[in-house]
Design a binder for these strands. Structure first.
Length: 254
DNA sequence: ATGGCTTGAGTGTCAAGA
């Protein structure tokens, strides 16, 4: 069983790459972020032809999330309950005896900005709801673009990023609160090479210089973490022609 | 050096990303 997450930065632009990637990697469940598509134009048929059911919640221009699955998707729910939000950032569904939560965490722009305040409110709401969701669904995976680099080793230049958005202490504390719910960072269940990241700025030749951040994550509840046998970033996808600025992350459950 | 790309909107050039 392979679970993956990928911020595609426009599913319209990336659809051909996404279809190729699905064919090459054969994941069972894939969470997509920044689809930037209204639901009425979501490429459901192309994905079904590739063997994937889709649950999606999108909007024009910004945000947008989707879950693709080779197994039947049931009990789809969009958004964080009791958190009113115009921004389409979260979708959850059940598949293969698991609860899959796909999230595009707010970026936060800069520490102290209105968008940063919104990010912290959104994180509070997510954590409160996820506690309840875990009680209902012990086999749960939270996959997505967290827009949080959890530790210094997840940052190419920790000193330059210290206290900056994506690395600030309140954001990292929120990440730890997710772990305190009983979730495990699948990537850190295994020995990993140094300097593995999931996002690189389009500018400044950041990918070539590997000046990146690890901000895309797969968190697994205890029963799923116990079954996890591998987790890796698929850096190859970032080398494509017209790539997303994010690479996919894949976890394999035995 | 606060830009550097990329996308979407929309047809000017700007907002937003991270």
């Amino acid at each position: 069983m392979k679970l993956a997450t990928w911020n595609v930065n426009s599913l319209k632009v990336r659809l051909p790459q996404a279809l190729e990637w699905l064919a090459a990697h054969q994941p069972d469940i894939v969470c997509l972020q920044e689809t930037k598509l209204e639901d009425k134009v979501f490429p459901r048929q192309e994905l079904e032809a590739a063997g994937y059911q889709a649950a999606f919640s999108g909007q024009k221009t910004y945000n947008g999330v989707a879950i693709l699955s080779r197994l039947p998707l049931t009990d789809v729910s969009a958004g964080i309950p009791d958190f009113a939000d115009e921004q389409r950032r979260l979708i959850a569904a059940s598949a293969g005896g698991m609860r899959i939560v796909c999230a595009y965490f707010p970026n936060g722009q800069s520490v102290g900005s209105d968008k940063y305040a919104y990010k912290l409110r959104w994180l509070d709401a997510l954590i409160a709801w996820l506690g309840e969701e875990l009680a209902r669904h012990p086999r749960l995976a939270l996959l997505g673009d967290y827009n949080i680099a959890p530790e210094a080793r997840d940052v190419h230049d920790p000193q330059a990023w210290e206290g900056q958005v994506l690395c600030s202490e309140p954001e990292r504390a929120a990440f730890r609160r997710l772990l305190e719910l009983g979730l495990k960072d699948a990537f850190r269940l295994f020995a990993q090479p140094d300097k593995i990241y999931s996002w690189w700025d389009y500018r400044m030749m950041a990918f070539r210089r590997n000046t990146g951040l690890r901000i895309d994550h797969i968190l697994l509840s205890e029963p799923l973490a116990g079954a996890c046998v591998a987790c890796a970033v698929d850096k190859a996808a970032r080398k494509a022609e017209r790539p997303s600025d994010h690479a996919p992350v894949i976890a394999e459950l035995g």
